[in-house]
Amino acid sequence: MIVHPTTAGMLLAGVLFVLGLISILVRRDIIFMLLSVEIMLNAAGLAFVVASSHWGTADGQVMFIFILAMAAAEVSVGLALILQLYHQLKTLDSDEAAKMNG
């Protein structure tokens, strides 16, 4: 059976995304959570590129670039936040940050 390339790429993207999702759900360490977000973003980017190649247009790849830029910004801000959290609470446990009930 020959699998349609788009289907295969989309399935890979789905599996990667779900793995990231499982990770973010089970982890308590906030750096691991950031890592899981990166996995999920990457999977989403992959899906865009697969779609781009399916239609033969550049839009999916443009979207990938935007996701890349967004990930870079997110990581920088996220790391700064984690740093602050670590200084304030002396831990990386995300549940400790529940004090504000936010």
């Binding site: 390339p5 781009s52 399916h54 239609w55 247009t57 550049a58 443009v62 670039i65």
Partner: peptide
């Protein structure tokens, strides 16, 4: 139907971007 993947040049991406 199964088809080949289509190549998208970096040039096209640049033009779109």
């Amino acid at each position: 139907p199964v088809s080949e993947v289509k190549m998208v040049n970096p040039k096209e991406v640049g033009i779109a971007l």
